[in-house]
Amino acid sequence: MSEMIDTKIRQHLSRFRVGIAGCGGLGSNCGVALARVGIGELVIVDFDVVEKSNLNRQYYFLKQVGLPKTEALQHNISLIDPTVRITSHNTTIKSDNVAELFGGCDVVVEAFDRADQKVMLIESMSLLLPDTPLISGSGMAGWGNNHLIRCEQYGNLYVCGDQQTEVSPDVPPLAPRVGIVASMQANFVMEILMRKKV
């Protein structure tokens, strides 16, 4: 019985395309979660390469250090489910390529590290793609305080995180809290797409 429901969910989700803006702690983990539930296509964008220091939270492996994150993530997702279509762009996201990169997406996940980049994407999306839901992550550094991590919806903008704990030299981003927020983002994506008619 549960297998039948799982198949129905996968069939529905296979019709949609989700954009992932940044393939670090949020983007790599959120992308993997979405691939596991059967999203049809992921548009993954990042300019960076995997570094050893990323392995404290990002869905990469030691032997992938030095590879472009988009290439490494595409490979890791293909090992989980080779039927997920991946369009990868090894480039920097700016206000002038947001529409081109994410124009065809049903939902976009903001998965940047830097706050100024988060603001840039939220502003660009609300001007250029105002009808596309955007799932942002804000406030997930450090550890503990499960009870402070929350989700809020502001129209078409969804924000996951405690909205206060920022990264600092003493408060790094780490797998548990970043993973929680990445999963919350994936959960919002799924909620939005499950109620969307094809």
């Binding site: 940044g22 949020l26 706050a115 603001v119 903008l157």
Partner: peptide, 28 residues
């Protein structure tokens, strides 16, 4: 509707408006 930074002094909030002010913090 997005209010850009350079319009904060001109954009007026009136009775009944729905306002969002988000402070984004680093980490991801």
């Amino acid at each position: 509707k997005l209010i850009k930074r350079d319009s904060y002094d001109e954009a007026v909030i009136r009775d009944g408006d729905e306002v969002t002010v988000l402070h984004l913090v680093s980490g991801g």
